[in-house]
């Protein structure tokens, strides 16, 4: 199992039965394929779908049935289709419970920065898409990210340096090495991957965190 699949599987465990869920592009999209048994959620896609299912195989796709990542999806019984304005009415109206999304930076206070980094001096990208609205209104915001960027720098910071998508909006951070909860007091380490110690994790994490009393091994479902 590669790191991306690990993260997607673990993030799927954050889904609560009955929740309306929105998944961002990239690793979050894959979460739809790992929803735990016994948990029924309703998937919302920004481009205008409620209640979609897993990726179809070739021959079962429909050219007009897709998610916000432009990938083919299947529609479940009870699915609804609507335009973009309605889709964001659903979001801003507070009807999406859980959001799982990727990020450029996240910090120990739950600040999220995932829409603007300097591509070249004075030019920012890639853009916020629907993220600002999603994180400002969802009850639970789960950030999925690789623990470190390619040069080894931590993605989980003491304080975000990039323009914010949302302030104090993140509840859970899932990486391939650990799971953290953001609480008003501190960032709390809840789970740690096999083969790494808390000390080693601190060494590769910029953010300060405390260790939960019930710290357990990283769960994959």
């Amino acid at each position: 199992m590669n790191e991306r699949e690990m993260i997607a599987r673990r993030a799927a465990l954050e889904l609560e039965d009955g929740a309306v869920v929105n998944l961002g592009i990239g690793i979050p999209t894959a979460v739809a394929n790992y929803i735990p048994e016994g948990v029924e959620v309703t998937m919302h896609a920004e481009n205008g779908v409620l209640a979609y299912g897993a990726t179809p195989e070739v021959g079962r796709q429909d050219p007009d049935v897709f998610n916000a990542g432009a990938q083919p999806i299947t529609l479940l019984p009870g699915a609804a289709i609507f335009d973009l304005s309605t889709s964001f009415g659903i979001i801003r109206g507070g009807h999406v419970d859980t959001v799982i999304l990727g990020t450029l930076e996240v910090d120990q206070k739950g600040n999220l920065a995932n829409w603007a980094r300097e591509l070249v001096p004075g030019k920012y990208g890639p853009g916020m898409g629907g993220a600002m609205e999603l994180v400002s209104k969802a009850r639970k915001v789960v950030v999925v990210t690789q623990h470190n960027v390619k040069n080894g720098e931590s993605k989980i910071l003491k304080e975000c340096t990039l323009p914010l998508t949302g302030k104090g909006v993140v509840n859970v951070i899932v990486t391939e090495k650990a799971v953290f909860n953001v609480t008003p007091q501190a960032l709390v380490l809840k789970e740690i991957a096999p083969g790494i110690t808390v000390g080693e994790l601190r060494a590769i994490t910029d953010a300060e965190f405390i260790v939960a009393e019930d710290l357990c091994e990283y769960r994959l479902g």
């Binding site: 304005s85 964001f88 009415g89 603007a116 990208g125 898409g129 629907g130 609205e133």
Partner: peptide, 12 residues
Amino acid sequence: EVEYFPMGIWIE
């Protein structure tokens, strides 16, 4: 040049 707006506000 690029001008960004949050998706739901963009459509509104």
